[in-house]
Each structure stands twice: as C-alpha cells, then as structure tokens.
C-alpha cells in the first residue's frame, strides 16, 4: 500500500464518519426492538408473499415446519453487526466478500421446495454466513456445507458452533465435486453461481432427491431451478419463478 493509499484510507474514514451521520439522520433510524417480535412479523410477511405467488410455486402456504423454523432462527446473528437492525427486513443483505445473505422469502421457499424430512442428509454449496444451513439443519438430521471463500467458511463454521447448530459441518473446498464421502444426499442446495449445473453434484443426489439452484447475481434471485431425480435415476428439471408475474397479457 502506498502513502497515497494510506492517506486516502485515513481521509476516507474520517470523511465517511461525518457523512454517515447525515445519512443515518435521513434514513430509517429504526430501533432494533425485540428480535422475536420482528421475526414473527417477517414470518407473516413471508406467508403473505407465498399466498401472492401461489399459482407460480404451486402452493398457497409453505410447510408449517419450515415457517416455524423461520420464526426460530435468529437472522440477526448471521448478518454483520452494522446491519443487524435490518436483519428482519425481507431483503438480501451484504455479508462482505462480495457475498449476500438471501432474502428470507427465498430462503423459506427454497427450504420448502427441498421437502426436508427429519432423517434426511442435505448438502449445501455456498455456505455464506450459514443462515440457510442453520434453517435447514432444524428440519433434517445432518447438513454438510461447502464454502469457496476461506474467510467465510471459517467464520460461518465458528458462528454455527457458537450458536449450537451441532448437526452442520462446514468445509472450505471446491463445491463442484460435492462431498463424496457423505453422498448420496436427499437434498442439495447450490447457491454458488455457475455457468452450468455440475454433473458430479447430480450424481450425488439420491433417487427421489431434490436439488435446488437459485439463479441470479448478487441481491437478485430471478428463478429457482429445481431438479428431481426419479427412482429410476432420471432427471427432471423445472424452473420456478419466485414472483407473481406472467409475461403474456391479453388472451393468455
């Protein structure tokens, strides 16, 4: 780092502290309040979103168990300290390293679409902050989660341990090849962007299992790709729009 770099960092900090005061004054200075209450409101919001999108996702309510877990897992523990006040807004948030924590509505929807059963073993590619793994872990027996960015893998692992999620194992590795020693999986969730669906992951899916891939860049899940492996080992894939929107108007 050169002198000017350092100077700009120092100046930048001082400068932004000042500006931050201004921005805070004009933006929502909402009290953090009771997280439990906020979480319940969020769950209600998600239920309403699900009702609105029922024709697209094929159901008017999500599994009760999923909604219960959404009301239990503290999302504020999975976001950076300065964003905790926004943890129960139904929106994605940045968690550093160019990564985000997904919109709660999408997390709930994806978890529901995976159709988790208490005895299931699930694989997650893209741990991020660990929130999705935490939600899933309350509905299955074991979650294995792979994160590509070392710092995130480390912090998510420590966080999950600290919060008592003992049935989640996180490792820093290449998600492309899945986690062979724990395969096959009943459910796989791939939140990492890829130009194609990794074939090794498909082979680690149990017959009858479900894989879900949210598609879209940071802050934007535009569709959910849902892959099912039939008992005979065939793959059926389907795209679910997480929004109530039909591109055709008029007679359609």
């Amino acid at each position: 780092m050169s002198c000017l770099d350092r100077l700009s960092v120092v100046l930048g900090r001082g400068f932004f502290l000042g500006v931050l005061g201004f921005v805070c004054a004009v933006s929502w200075a909402q009290p953090t309040g009771d997280y439990q209450q906020q979480r319940q409101r969020l769950v209600e919001e998600i239920s309403q979103d699900v009702i609105n999108t029922r024709t697209y996702i094929g159901k008017s309510s999500l599994d009760d168990r999923v909604m219960r877990v959404m009301g239990l897992v503290g999302r504020h523990r999975f976001v950076p300290a300065d964003l905790q006040s926004q943890a129960y807004k139904n929106r994605p948030l940045p968690i550093g390293y160019g990564q985000t924590i997904s919109q709660p509505y999408i997390v709930a929807l994806m978890t529901d679409l995976l159709d988790p059963e208490p005895g299931d073993v699930a694989l997650e590619i893209g741990t991020g902050s660990g929130y999705q793994a935490a939600v899933l872990s309350r509905l299955v027996s074991q979650v294995y989660s792979i994160e590509i960015i070392p710092q995130l893998a480390e912090s998510a692992s420590a966080r999950l341990k600290r919060l008592g999620f003992s049935n989640i194992e996180v490792k820093n590795a290449d998600g492309y090849y899945g986690w062979e020693e724990h395969a096959p999986f009943d459910a796989i969730i791939v939140t990492a962007a890829s130009s194609h669906i990794p074939p090794p992951l498909v082979s680690q899916l149990k017959p009858g299992g479900v894989m879900i891939i949210p598609v879209g860049p940071a802050f934007q899940v535009q569709q959910l790709s849902l892959l099912r492996k039939t008992a005979a080992g065939e793959i059926h894939s389907q795209q679910v729009l997480p929004v109530r929107f039909v591109p055709f108007t008029g007679e359609h």
Binding site: S2, C3, L4, S8, G98, Q99, I148, P217
Partner: peptide
C-alpha cells in the same frame, strides 16, 4: 511518481473481486 501511486478499489460484487477471494 510511484510515491503517489494508488490501487483501484473494485466493487466487491464484480467477478474479478469474487474470483480473487478463492483460496
């Protein structure tokens, strides 16, 4: 001169920033 050199702070959400995070 290089004394005043500085580096570009690329948005963390751009592909290059994300690729460089990988081990």
């Amino acid at each position: 001169s290089p004394v005043a050199g500085f580096s570009l702070q690329i948005s963390q959400f751009k592909g290059l920033s994300q690729a460089l995070r990988v081990l």
